[in-house]
């Protein structure tokens, strides 16, 4: 399957899972909002240019926004993590050159610890920005802090489960340059 087709299917699946499963779940607590959809941006291939990755992030977030009737909220957060993503990847795997030998970020291509850091940083960034935007119009500082921490914890758990359930095999590609 080509990367384009694979990512298109992921695009649709992640939005459907977020809208029809995670947003439909009965609320556990007002701080806990399970998010998984942004994993799509984390899984995008290394080879995309920074501009296109930023735009994909924006478009992806906006698609979700039209389901939740909050145009711009998720789009802003997704644009931010999509823009920051190349910097984080550059910091974490500058030594190995894995971005040339593998297709997309994963446990196999980046190693366990760098990949976990990568997910953690972008999750916190996404949630902080998303909740900050909600906080501007509504709520208190406790709401902001509590929601960022609780939602990030739940989201990280969901990401871990997804990584374990849908293990992505990555081929090591030589002579790529």
């Amino acid at each position: 399957m080509s990367e384009l087709l694979k990512n298109t299917i992921r695009f649709i699946l992640f939005i459907l899972v977020q809208v029809f499963i995670l947003f439909k779940m009965p609320p556990l607590h007002r701080f806990i909002a399970p998010y998984l959809y942004y994993l799509f941006i984390l899984w995008l291939p290394f080879s995309l240019s920074r501009m296109s990755i930023t735009f994909i992030g924006f478009f992806f977030g906006l698609c979700l926004d039209y389901f939740t009737k909050t145009p711009g909220l998720h789009a802003a957060a997704c644009t931010l993590i999509a823009y920051v993503r190349p910097f984080v990847i550059g910091l974490l795997i500058s030594q190995e050159g894995a971005d040339k030998n593998y297709i997309s970020p994963s446990i196999v291509s980046m190693g366990w610890a760098p990949y976990a850091t990568y997910v953690l940083v972008l999750t916190l960034l996404h949630h902080s920005y998303l909740v900050l935007l909600q906080w501007l119009t509504f709520g208190s500082f406790i709401f902001f802090l509590g929601k960022v921490i609780a939602s990030s914890a739940v989201s990280l758990l969901l990401v871990l489960l997804t990584e374990l359930l849908f293990f992505r095999k990555q081929k090591f590609r030589t002579n790529t340059i």
Partner: peptide, 21 residues
């Protein structure tokens, strides 16, 4: 260019958000 493009998209997103509210 990348940073400016990012800024433009952010502004578009935020204007959607606050105008909608």
């Amino acid at each position: 260019f990348n940073f400016l493009f990012f800024l433009v998209l952010q502004i578009v997103a935020l204007s959607f958000l606050f105008r909608f509210n």
